[in-house]
């Protein structure tokens, strides 16, 4: 097949889409659904800027996922973490720890941090660092990002 009909839930909204099979989830999110908060940084799986969550907790890469393979799946982007004007504890911690500079890595970094804590609510610093691999930040040296995950972990 060259196109596939899929039903994709993004931040709680169900979309019935007819997607060309060669399009990545990242393209469909950004170009077809206007969810531009998920970023392109490399397209080859290295930088994590395109990270989104499946079922609210598993981190995957938009750039290395075929949209056609996402039928029936539920995706959360960074924009879906805020609920009724209330930020997610990870988002709050990123602001409070000043873990954001240029902010381009932030959507992916925040989603990744949510996934880390979903799996292990009290990670050690070493575990946080190990699991932040795959999300490149060129601004912060990761110092304040690690601190933000630690702070969020105290609240979750």
């Amino acid at each position: 097949m060259k196109k596939r009909s899929i039903s994709l839930t993004v931040n709680g909204t169900v979309h019935d889409l007819e997607v060309p099979v060669h399009r990545t989830l990242l393209q469909v999110l950004r170009e077809d659904l206007d969810q531009v908060e998920t970023k392109y940084g490399c397209g080859t799986g290295e930088c994590g800027a395109c990270t989104v969550l499946v079922d609210g907790e598993k981190a995957i890469l938009g750039c290395l996922t075929l949209a056609a393979s996402m039928d029936g799946k539920s995706i959360t982007t960074v924009a879906g973490l805020e609920k009724d004007g209330q930020l997610h504890p990870v988002q709050e911690a990123f602001i409070e720890e000043h873990a954001i500079q240029c902010g381009y890595c932030t959507p992916g970094m925040v989603c990744k941090s949510v996934s880390i804590l979903a799996k292990n609510p009290k990670p050690s610093e070493e575990e946080i660092r190990h699991n932040l691999e795959g999300n490149i930040c060129r601004c912060t040296g990761y110092v304040k990002i690690v601190q933000a995950v630690q702070r969020a972990s105290e609240r979750i």
């Binding site: 960074v78 930020l87 602001i95 000043h98 902010g103």
Partner: peptide, 14 residues
């Protein structure tokens, strides 16, 4: 907090 932190952490920054 930085002026742009909230916009960036929610993905609203363009």
């Amino acid at each position: 907090p930085k002026v742009d932190a909230r916009r960036k952490v929610t993905g609203h920054q363009e």
